[in-house]
Design a protein around this nucleic acid. Structure first.
Lengths: 197, 197
DNA sequence: TTGACATGTTATCAGTCGATTACTTACTGT
DNA sequence: ACAGTAAGTAATCGACTGATAACATGTCAA
């Protein structure tokens, strides 16, 4: 019999804890592929507690999704708010790229975003995803880039997201065409990603 | 009592029919979000029949996924096999782009591919997805483009896939930043997509 | 015609999932 | 000290899911 002191947490703190756990869980399996019980296990609480705290699984996912996108948007805003941004400068463009690749270390946010995007079949998720994608694009437009430049920047981000979803960095085989793509897409960040796995 | 003549189909034909139905069904909900019963309903057969014909739901999805990717690869190969391809030619580049945008009419294939990519959490799907992505990239490399050009081409495709998953074309609101992105990503194909919906 | 095989279906099952209810226990102000 | 509230859990439910088994019927060669 372990006589551990069972101490409690404020609901707000517990909420943050579950939100973080849910982010990890949903990052793995997406909306449909993750049970509320899996989230509960990850958070170390009971399944009914998760449901009651967030209402429904859908509400929980939406909150996780929006939080993830907000985090990503914030990374760009940080660059844009740091000082004047020259749309012609290759250097400034690199700073925006860096903001994104730094997010690769928090893979979970990017994966959750990706899962939200591909769960557009659920009406509420689709609506949230469209709104969030719009917000991210609007943020990127603040660079002053042309629509085409902004579009290509987003496209490049989507490629990285897909490569992460594929678990490409941890599964590269020499000589594989996918390896060429991964090297060329992730660049020097590839080694960092592999060391994380 | 309707006295319809119940006629039968060869297993091969029925298989094709179910495969097509499964493509439509999985395109909507992805692997986790689509039940074998939904596939059966779409195909107009009983649920056990679907399962027995393909073994498991996973086997069925893998077959649908590989078929979709093969179809997409075939679209590129058609351009490449049509005659000499000049990697410097803007015209030839446009032909490759056109091959992809023509696939937008068969949205289901692209959506299934996307769902496969984002279900990398299921080991067998992840493995298939990496192999297929590698094959597609290898096909694109046949253009003679630099790795970076090929990468950017794939990235652009991923953006279009994501925009489709978001149901963006059918949900555009004037003044929305997402509309700008959609117009700039789909170009003149946008109207075609909207008329399909 | 008939029997054997191929093409299906109905019935059913065990497991999983999201959600609800009722209960327990730690904390907090007075 | 103690009553009330907040933080959690155990038990359970109905719906759904993938899969299996048993059964029915159309098709075709001899």
């Amino acid at each position: 019999m372990s006589a551990e002191k069972v101490t409690r947490m404020s609901a707000d703190d517990r909420r943050e804890l579950i939100l973080a756990a849910a982010t990890r869980a949903f990052a793995q399996g997406g909306y449909h592929g993750t049970s509320t019980d899996a989230v509960a296990k990850e958070a170390g609480v009971s399944q009914p507690y998760v449901v009651r705290m967030f209402g429904t699984k859908l509400d929980l996912f939406l909150e996780v999704f929006e939080h993830a996108v907000h985090r990503i948007k914030a990374a760009f805003e940080e660059v844009l708010d740091a000082g004047p941004f020259d749309p012609e400068s290759e250097d400034d463009k690199a700073r925006m790229g860096l903001a994104y690749t730094e997010l690769l270390r928090d893979q979970d946010f990017l994966q959750v975003m990706m899962h939200g995007f591909s769960s557009g079949g659920v009406p509420e998720i689709g609506a949230a995803a469209r709104r969030c994608m719009g917000e991210v694009f609007a943020t990127i437009q603040r660079t002053g880039w042309s629509d085409e430049q902004a579009r290509d920047f987003v496209a490049y981000g989507m490629l990285l997201n897909v490569m992460l979803s594929l678990r490409a960095p941890e599964n590269l085989k020499p000589g594989d065409p996918l390896t060429v793509l991964a090297v060329c897409a992730f660049g020097e960040d590839l080694e960092v990603l592999q060391s994380l796995a």
